[in-house]
Computed example of a mutant assay.
Amino acid sequence: MRPGARYVDPENRRGRGAASRETGRFERYAHVDADDGWGIAPDIAPLRTEVTEERPRSMINFVRSPDLPFDRTLNPYRGCEHGCIYCFARPTHAWLGLSPGLDFETRLVARPDAPAVLQRELRAPRYRVAPIAIGTNTDPYQPVERDRGIMRGCLQVLHDCDHPVGIVTKGTLIERDIDILSPMAAKGLVRVGITVTTLDADLSRRMEPRVPLPARRLQTIRRLSEAGIEVRLMVSPVIPALTDPELERILEAGAEAGATAASWIMLRLPLEVSPLWQDWLAEHYPDRARRIMARLREMHGGRDYDARWHHRMRGEGHYATLIAHRFRRATRKLGLDRTLPELRRDLFRPPALPGDQLALF
């Protein structure tokens, strides 16, 4: 165990991915748990999910990364209850003064005004249409969406003005929105990526504790495909000596479920993710921990992670080359090596509001 880390008793964090909640890296003071003098131990009760609200001034986040096939994203929530221990977005919670560990998955921020703010941004005279990526930071179909419906509201705005969108999720709640997605897909306006990290239900429950099990996600691929929605199977992340033996089997299962393309990303351990990941390995797979970390460091010049463009997603060296070769061979065999057509932009029209003057033509 790391000295100074704020570990929480396993009984009080059941169903969570991280084991600790140390202070975020931008905080001036560190927080520690201590007996308050009344004989009541801290963290005596199980951790509950807390949701606060934020009123954003903007929703579209423009990004400039040569590694990404899009230049703008949208996030209905901050933090993610799915609790995937490997999530590269965990460090973003430090900007809120919260822990990238347990706070990331238990102290969420919802943005209920997101649909209205998005509509306003799309009406701006200077706005130029391009696909918006949703789900690239935190999952828009995490459990809290069932009650909040913020993602559905944003999707309705995009549907009503024929705006292209790409969605990435592990959440089967996306099936609720097939009534919106299917007509958009018929116009070439939407594409969905479903992430399947492993087919092992036990490993999945340990590693991504509040994500629907792999078999259920494959069923979601099938239901979306049957509704005419193109689905990309995302094998992400590939974890050396843990999930990499499953690579071909995952691709076969995705193809059988109806996926039309596939992609992969190697495990990434930026900033606080690395110590959180290593804590998780020590707790769940101590016999493989050294081997897994050795393979990762081989791909990043001896470091846990290298954030260079064109390197961070796949790594380099013999192991990374081997995974890439296996992936290419399997996708070619299964017909998943397709390059999907670009989403249409020509149908977009700025959202109309009550009272707007109607167009003459």
Rank of each mutant, 00 (worst) to 15 (best):
P214D: 03
D160H: 11
E226P: 03
T169V: 06
R176F: 10
I194Q: 03
A227C: 10
Y141H: 10
L181D: 02
V190S: 04
V129M: 09
G193S: 12
E230G: 00
P237A: 07
T220E: 02
V211G: 08
Q219A: 15
E175T: 11
P125R: 03
A185I: 02
T136R: 05
D202G: 13
V129H: 09
A116E: 15
Q142V: 05
I132T: 15
E121Q: 12
D200I: 10
R120Q: 14
P131S: 04
L173T: 07
P143A: 04
P140G: 10
V165Q: 08
L118S: 00
A130D: 12
V144R: 00
M234D: 12
T169D: 07
V168W: 01
V117F: 10
C161Q: 03
L122C: 09
R176H: 14
D139Y: 08
K187C: 03
P214W: 02
S236M: 14
A227E: 01
A215Y: 14
I150L: 10
H159Y: 14
A124Y: 06
R223D: 12
D162L: 09
H163T: 08
D200P: 11
V196F: 06
T197H: 04
Q219G: 15
T136Q: 13
R146T: 06
L155W: 13
Y127E: 14
G153C: 14
R191Q: 11
I174W: 00
P209W: 00
D200Q: 11
I229Y: 00
R176L: 01
D139H: 02
L213C: 04
R222C: 11
R217E: 03
V192S: 03
P214R: 04
Q219V: 09
A124K: 00
L118E: 02
R148N: 08
A185Y: 05
R210C: 03
G166L: 06
H159K: 13
A215W: 13
S236A: 15
V190A: 02
T136H: 13
A116I: 14
T197S: 09
P143C: 06
G171A: 11
T197G: 04
A130V: 09
P209N: 02
D179S: 15
V144N: 00
I134Y: 05
R205G: 04
T195V: 06
V144Y: 03
E226R: 14
R123K: 08
I150E: 01
G193Q: 06
A227Q: 04
A116G: 12
S225G: 10
D179I: 09
V157W: 10
E121F: 12
P214T: 01
I180E: 05
I221M: 01
L203G: 02
P115Q: 11
V144D: 01
H163D: 07
R222K: 12
L233Y: 01
L218G: 04
Q119N: 09
D179T: 13
R128I: 12
H163M: 09
A186V: 03
L218D: 04
L203D: 01
D200V: 09
T197Q: 08
T169W: 07
E145K: 11
P214H: 05
P209D: 03
M207A: 09
P125T: 07
S236H: 10
S236W: 13
V117Y: 09
V235M: 07
L181N: 02
D177W: 11
